[in-house]
Amino acid sequence: MPAGREGNPPSQWSACGMRWGIQGRTMLGYIGRRLAVAVPLLLLISFVVFAIMHQLPYDVIDSFSRPDMDREALEALRERYGLNDPFLVQYGRWLWGVLHGDFGYSLVSRHSIADDLLTKIPHSISLVLPAYLIALVLAIGLGLLAGANRGRPTDTVIDTSNALLISMPPFWFALLVMYFFGHTLRLFPIIGMHSVGRTDFTDFALHLFMPCLVLTVAFYPDLSRYVRSSTIAQLGEDYVMVQRAFGANKREIFLSHVSRHVLLPIITQLGLALPMLVTGALITETIFAWPGVGKYFADAVNTFDYPVVMAVLLLSAALVIIGNLLADISYRLADPRVRLKGGVS
């Protein structure tokens, strides 16, 4: 790895790692450096979003005030919520709270945001996790199948369906599913997570079916394409030709070599999917009124409930950064040939 430090580094190197002196040596140091970049990045994101929310011509008082309400009473409310303080004071107060694990209170419902998130995150995970796992299993199976039969009818069918599914707007598919299964066949309840007064699993599963189907179809095609193209790339590698030359049959090569090389990099996709656990279902949750983080955020945006917006954005940005880091680390563990590089991308 430090070979580039002697002699002339290739141009690619000087562009990425060498110039910044952040070429990694040990895994722990690498993680430390990445986290050292991540913290200021999160601060910057929170500051920018706070500034945007502050610039808005409306605030939360406007979202629940009526024309007949007393102007002075509204002004008193603004004062009580601290909305009249200077921008930096408001930001400082918010940041101080976050550092103490206090995300503040929703301005609309007056609930503690931390408590709200603690109930809503499991709801989102219970929807996204099964959908992602089903999509992943389907994608691995069908992607390997398509890649192994490149150019044959099996591949054409799988590849064309992937292309069509990628072009399909997920919210349109959600509407079709809702119309077909919900309105026409009346098989599944259309909105929510539980029927009123019921908490049993059957009821939950019935509510889960449609949003989960929509999400699975949304996650599947990209993963499937990824598996298919890396299968095709692996089949063109030299080691396959060597195996052939030594008389191994196609099945052996595929099962014991190619599939292993294809499946290892998929670990990296898991890291990249981490932020989706929480906010990946924003549209689906909104359509099916699933009480998760996505719907929580969308509602908060519509009512200018900025403490909620800030909390979800910060959570989501943190997950993006952690997910990228996990992806890079797992990729490094899966393939020791990969050099560690700095940066947060």
């Binding site: 990045l41 910057l44 979003v49 945007i52 929310m53 808005l56 940005a317 993006v320």
Partner: peptide, 17 residues
């Protein structure tokens, strides 16, 4: 890197306000 680590749908919803 900064823009890449933004959750874009959430950010765009905020900016569009």
């Amino acid at each position: 890197d900064f823009f890449n680590s933004l959750p874009w749908l959430l950010m765009v919803m905020v900016v569009s306000l």
